[in-house]
C-alpha cells in the first residue's frame, strides 16, 4: 500500500474519529500543538458540510433554531459521512435522520418539511425537458391509447404528508417576521413541486383525482390504469380537462408505448 494512502487514512481518523495521538508524529510541532492544528481542519470540514445542509434546509433550520440545527447537523454528518466532492449531493438522508433523531421526536412534521426541502433542491437542479410532443401523441391509434405510459417532467415531484407542510413552509420565509400559529390538525396535503418556464419553483396542492393521476404516471402505470385510479380517488374528476391541463403546464412531458414498433416519443433536452 502507498505510504500516502496510509497517511491519508491516518489524517482522516485524526480529524473525524479523534485518533489524534497516532497521527501527531506526522505533524511538525511548531508553536501550536498538533491538536489545535487538526482542530482547524475539523472545524473547516464541519462548517463546509453544515453550510451545505443549511443551504438545502433553511426552513428546518428556522423551525428548530440555528443552534439546535448545528447540533443536529453535526450528528447527521457523523452518522452519514459525505460521500462526494460535490456538496449538492450531501444531505439526502436528512429527513430520514430527523425521523429517528430522538431530540426532535415531538416535532412529528419536521421530517416531512425536510422531505419538501430536499425535493425543492432536486427540482431546482433537475434537467430541462421539452414539452410533450402532441403530434406524436395524435399519431397513436385510439385503441392503443390506454397502453401509453406518460412521464412527468424531470423537475416535477409529488409529495404526500399527513401534516400541513406547505403552510408550514410558506409560514417560514427566510426573512419572515409574521409567524402564524399553524394547527397540525388542519390536515395533510398532496403536493406537486415543479419548476415553471421561468425556472421558478412552484408548489401546488392537489385534489385526490389530480394526485392519483400524476402519481400513477410517475409510477409508470399504463394510461388506462392511471385513469381508473384517478376516477376511483375522485368520482367527479374531470379527467380530459385535467390531463390536458398537466400537459399544457409542462408537468406531463413524455410518453412511450411498451412496444418496439412504436419508438419512445421523448424529445428529451431541447437542443
Amino acid at each position: 500500500m502507498l505510504a500516502l494512502r496510509e497517511w491519508q487514512q491516518g489524517f482522516t481518523a485524526a480529524v473525524l474519529d479523534g485518533a489524534e495521538d497516532a497521527f501527531a508524529r506526522h505533524i511538525r510541532a511548531r508553536h501550536f500543538s498538533s491538536e489545535r492544528r487538526l482542530q482547524v481542519y475539523r472545524n473547516n470540514s464541519r462548517i463546509s458540510l453544515t453550510s451545505a445542509l443549511e443551504a438545502i434546509y433553511p426552513v428546518v433550520r428556522r423551525l428548530v433554531g440555528e443552534g439546535f440545527f448545528r447540533y443536529a447537523a453535526a450528528e447527521y454528518i457523523h452518522r452519514h459521512p459525505s460521500r462526494a466532492g460535490d456538496l449538492h449531493l450531501f444531505g439526502d438522508a436528512f429527513a430520514a435522520f430527523l425521523a429517528s433523531f430522538e431530540p426532535v421526536a415531538e416535532l412529528t412534521y419536521l421530517p416531512d418539511v425536510a422531505r419538501l426541502e430536499w425535493n425543492y433542491h432536486q427540482v431546482f437542479h433537475a434537467a430541462r425537458h421539452a414539452p410533450l410532443d402532441r403530434q406524436a401523441l395524435m399519431a397513436i391509434p385510439p385503441e392503443r391509447q390506454g397502453e401509453l405510459r406518460f412521464r412527468l417532467h424531470p423537475a416535477a415531484r409529488l409529495l404526500v404528508s399527513p401534516f400541513p407542510i406547505l403552510r408550514i413552509w410558506q409560514n417560514n420565509p427566510q426573512d419572515g417576521v409574521d409567524e402564524e400559529l399553524i394547527d397540525l390538525a388542519e390536515g395533510g396535503v398532496n403536493l406537486l413541486i415543479f419548476r415553471d418556464e421561468e425556472l421558478d419553483i412552484r408548489f401546488q396542492p392537489l385534489g385526490d383525482g389530480d394526485f392519483a393521476l400524476l402519481h400513477a404516471c410517475a409510477e409508470g402505470c399504463a394510461f388506462a390504469a392511471a385513469c381508473e385510479q384517478a376516477m376511483t380517488a375522485q368520482a367527479d374528476f374531470d379527467l380530459p380537462t385535467r390531463f390536458s391541463h398537466w400537459v399544457a403546464q409542462g408537468v406531463v412531458t413524455a410518453f412511450d408505448l411498451p412496444d418496439p414498433s412504436f419508438p419512445i416519443a421523448d424529445r428529451g433536452e431541447p437542443t
Binding site: 500516502l4 497517511w7 451545505a52
Partner: peptide, 25 residues
Amino acid sequence: SWGSVGGRFLNDLLPLPYTEEALQH
C-alpha cells in the same frame, strides 16, 4: 490538495505531504 480517502469526504482542501511519492502521485 486532497479531500477524501476510503470514500469518506471531508469537503475541505487538505494539504499533502510534500514527498517524492506524493509528487509522483
